[in-house]
Design a protein around this nucleic acid. Structure first.
Lengths: 232, 232
DNA sequence: CTTTCGTAAATGTGATCACGCTTCAAAGGG
DNA sequence: CCCTTTGAAGCGTGATCACATTTACGAAAG
């Protein structure tokens, strides 16, 4: 699953491995927002020298998946209402477009694969396995977006997921996952029907419903879909 | 103008300065796609040790503004038709949203500032100063988007501009800028009218018209080959 | 018991070096 | 004259160290 043939990759560098490990932790929410991260600490934990960790962390800071405090200390960024709204907006704008782009590349076999992922997802929801649900949800979405080769959209969307991951996981752990509803069925139906508009709309609804619900459950339920009139 | 008060920034690190310098070159198109970039070369050119350059370049590779060849060599990425389409899509989806978000923060004084930028832009167009035009266009767009504090949308959009910059500059230098039409007037009018829909539409048209025209002038129309184009 | 202060540990940053690999060009053989 | 070989130079990567700054912790004073 995590295998990467990469026909023209001479070798995997250590900072790449560290980067992938940290990215997985962020998307899976296996890190706590606000917790400090240190180069030497991670180096010892991962069994490498501080140098590759430094490069990987630097990348993640560049992608806003980690943040650097004014005192030059690295930590998992804490979520704010404004940042959450921005993430919802960016995801809602980009992911339907990525799905649209991927549609011509999605075959029936891909849909079968998606269905197996979605079945596993439902299973994780039943057993309340937050970790497994998050992983399955990620696999489902990127199983769609990644069907088309992408040098821009998919990397940006991955960055958005890294930024949302720790917070989402935190909220799931707090309010549970049983209330979750998704539009994965609609998305798969749309793929089979080769209906780009329906696919885009399914993805859009999936994002907006899920994240809006989360946002409202955590941040004060003041303004929802109203025109934002200065959140400051 | 370029002064950064930054009330809580203890000091500017060297790799930050290097990063800003390189980002400026990329957005301004003062680098040539396909040209190799070396750590030691840049270090010597900028008068610093290879270490800060290494961190800055690593960030830019993470943001897809620079690319790493399979042989672990760094270079300015070459544009392909597929990548260009992705960049257009991402910009067209995100920038109107960023403008919408910024509208409540835009005051009449900001519009006056934008108008001065746009006047300078027209002047650069008249004199055929490609470099100045690109800088003014950047200042105009981010003068809008940056009005609202943003931790997600604006950084992502900057990354998109870094990825487009070298190619755009190359095309401008080849086909000229006199044919350019923009929707800056419509955007400023929309801001004054507090019309979010009109503002978003002006930004959207500005992006689509400009970039579509460029794309069609460089890539063969109706072409689906992903053969690289536009560099020499 | 609370507050203040000073010392020690820990942090990110930058410099320098060694290593494996690639690239390029000149020398050698066809 | 063209192709192959071979050597040196240059590349990114990782390790280790020194340094300035910040945090943490404990002791002393109130």
């Amino acid at each position: 699953m995590t295998e990467k043939p990469a026909p023209d990759a001479p070798r995997e560098t250590m900072h790449e491995r560290v980067y992938r490990e940290l990215r997985g932790r962020l998307i899976g929410g296996r890190v706590v927002p606000g917790r400090p991260v240190t180069l030497r600490g991670l180096a010892g934990e991962l069994g490498v020298s501080p140098m590759p960790v430094r490069e990987a962390v630097n990348r993640l800071v560049a992608e806003r998946a980690l943040t650097m405090t004014p005192n030059r200390r690295i930590s998992v960024p804490e979520m704010t209402h404004a940042r959450f709204e921005e993430l919802v907006t960016a995801r809602e704008r980009l992911e339907p477009a990525a799905a649209r782009r991927a549609l011509p590349y999605l075959r029936r076999s891909d849909v079968n694969r998606l269905r197996k992922i979605d079945d596993a997802l439902e299973e994780q929801l039943k057993t309340g396995n937050v970790e497994g649900y998050v992983a399955a949800n990620h696999a489902f979405h990127f199983g769609i977006y990644g069907a088309a080769p992408s040098d821009v959209l998919v990397p940006v969307i991955e960055s958005l997921w890294m930024q949302s991951g720790p917070f989402m996981r935190l909220v799931y752990g707090r309010v549970g996952t049983s209330w979750l509803v998704d539009y994965h069925e609609q998305a798969m139906d749309a793929v089979l029907a080769r209906d780009a508009d329906a696919l885009a709309e399914a993805i859009r609804s999936d994002i907006l419903d899920g994240m809006r619900h989360i946002g409202n459950s955590v941040f004060e339920e003041g303004e929802q879909s109203s025109k934002r009139a200065g959140t400051r």
